[in-house]
Design a binder for these strands. Structure first.
Ligand SMILES: NC(=O)c1ccc[n+]([C@@H]2O[C@H](COP(=O)([O-])OP(=O)(O)OC[C@H]3O[C@@H](n4cnc5c(N)ncnc54)[C@H](O)[C@@H]3O)[C@@H](O)[C@H]2O)c1
Ligand SMILES: NC(=O)c1ccc[n+]([C@@H]2O[C@H](COP(=O)([O-])OP(=O)(O)OC[C@H]3O[C@@H](n4cnc5c(N)ncnc54)[C@H](O)[C@@H]3O)[C@@H](O)[C@H]2O)c1
Lengths: 280, 280
DNA sequence: AAGCGTTTGTGAACGCGCGCACAAAGTCGC
DNA sequence: GCGACTTTGTGCGCGCGTTCACAAACGCTT
């Protein structure tokens, strides 16, 4: 959404520009020159896709590719090539026409933009069923995140060591979180406590929250909240499944069988389906 | 009416919806034959919010409310009231002017639209760190889902009982999944195996997949895939956090991302922040 | 150096979703 | 029974995001 008024956002990112002799020092597109410093403002939709591009680039680099075309990278990331090029254009021009993008250089650049130059500190609050799984997840490190604290308020859980970290009481939160905005909090407490816990985290300086509890969190301006609601995801899938079931095969004959991937090409949904409700 | 600023959750993450849109996506206008009665075509953005409305309605019903105004329900769901009314209008008119909506009736109606009349069958594939947490999660049942099967291929895991269900080998998948499209599969296997496992599930009749593995899944038309990528969520938060850090005290009014509170909101952002990279 | 094929970057059209504002429709008070 | 008030439902304008299509830019070959 339009929410963020990206303020300046100049290319101040320390401009490491290591060895890469980009030759063209003239790719400073929006030369402000006059008037307001304005904001290149990367669109939200683009930001949401950058992680996918980064993942695809990591895979390509590991596979030995040195350059990729927008077509190939888009394929790997599961998007259209035009969309990918436009997305990258918001970050600046880092491709070479006629060749493509330098895998390593583009990876570095996107990682910089995502703040992944150094590892972000992550704290997990609520080490229950879900929090335990998250604490033991090894996939965060490779994406630029380091879990530096686990918190709970259950005496039976406090003190246990999970994933190499000791579970602490919430009172010690302030000691671990550090500077305001320097850590991301993952909320994995029961829904009825989520708001209260969130308030404490914000009071302690938290500016970024990933919420797993199925509740609407109220936070002051300046705090960023993203939610992951598994039940909602299932319900959205259920909605589509139900619609699919209600609308049987249309165009019985003329249906163009544009196969996607090696898989059964046969038309599905032979007849109406029914769901059962008993448990096995 | 002009009192409070529109409450408005972030919710930017609406359906990236990669892959191929279902063939029947939106071929409504040029109705070739006779006028088809069905398919008012609920917008995707609306579908993604229906679960939130349903949750809010459940809470209201439990609190004893018999009716709600669009304003109150929107507040509870964390959206704007105009948006909510427009969303509901896509489902048909079920409100009473001058009064509001009947809580129980609206809940029933939305639940019907989401196919929640009966409990959907859910199978979890990959009972590791994450799959274990999901299998033991009690929050699915109240949202209309019943876990009916757990699958893995690790002999050390097969046979174990988790959440009252025995973990089965993938070979038995076909016996449990039932009619094509009648169950939703939750993928919680390592990324490098996700595609292969997904192919097997689809071949066995699965039409809805919720993917936790950080990979792009290729599926044939007619199969609906939604992904939950925790690392990406963190990276998006990191992007905003970094931008916030780069933009010091500016205009707090329009700056922050999606404020929710309609009142005081004492934004601080005292000074620039820095991240540290060493682990504790 | 010039031509040729390739690929990027982007201008422009298009469609979707959002929020405003208001008339219609209903309730409540008298 | 009637007027005033409340709240829904929606028409409309607008901005964001996606897609198409193409000229400019680049490497490679001759
Ligand atoms: N488990 C899942 O697979 C799953 C799936 C989707 C959503 N969720 C949501 O994630 C959240 C956690 O789920 P769970 O299954 O891990 O629940 P859980 O009950 O197993 O764990 C919750 C943990 O939070 C701790 N806690 C409670 N109040 C606290 C407080 N005030 N401060 C600090 N810690 C506190 C508890 O001690 C417990 O350890 C819930 O909101 C749930 O709805 C879980
Ligand atoms: N644990 C988390 O908190 C977390 C967070 C984000 C994403 N993920 C993703 O979720 C997935 C699972 O994560 P995890 O931590 O549970 O991993 P895990 O290794 O703990 O569990 C994976 C399970 O899948 C099983 N498996 C492997 N190959 C299989 C196959 N071919 N068929 C059936 N089962 C198979 C394994 O036996 C194991 O039990 C991974 O893709 C991971 O990236 C996990």
């Amino acid at each position: 959404m339009p929410g963020l008024t990206a303020v300046d956002e100049d290319d101040v990112s320390s401009a490491p520009r290591d060895g890469a002799p980009t030759a063209d020092g003239a790719d400073r597109p929006p030369a402000p020159g006059t008037a307001v410093p304005e904001a290149p403002a990367v669109p939200e939709a683009t930001v949401a896709r950058l992680p996918q591009y980064l993942r695809a680039l990591s895979a390509l680099a590991e596979a030995g590719s040195r350059t990729v075309s927008s077509e190939a990278l888009a394929e790997a990331a599961g998007v259209g090539s035009a969309k990918l090029r436009k997305d990258l254009s918001h970050l600046g021009s880092y491709g070479t026409r006629g060749v493509g993008y330098d895998v390593e250089q583009l990876h570095r650049h996107i990682a910089d933009r995502l703040g992944q130059a150094a590892s972000w500190r992550v704290v997990i609050v609520g080490v229950g069923n879900l929090g335990h799984a998250l604490a033991g997840y090894s996939g965060f490190a490779s994406r630029g995140f380091t879990v530096v604290g686990l918190f709970d308020d259950d005496p039976a859980v406090i003190g246990r060591v999970v994933g190499g970290l000791r579970v602490r009481p919430l009172e010690e939160f302030g000691e671990v979180v550090g500077e305001p905005g320097s850590a991301i909090a993952v909320l994995a407490v029961p829904a009825r406590h989520a708001q209260a816990v969130c308030d404490r985290l914000v009071a302690a300086g938290t500016r970024s929250v990933l919420n797993f509890a199925p509740t609407v969190l109220r936070v002051p301006d300046g705090v960023d909240v993203r939610k992951v609601d598994l039940a909602s995801e299932l319900q959205i899938l259920a909605f589509h499944a139900q619609r699919r079931a209600a609308a049987p095969a249309h165009r019985p004959s003329a249906a163009g069988p544009r196969g996607a991937t090696g898989a059964p090409a046969g038309p599905l949904l032979p007849h109406a389906l029914h769901r059962v409700e008993e448990v096995v």
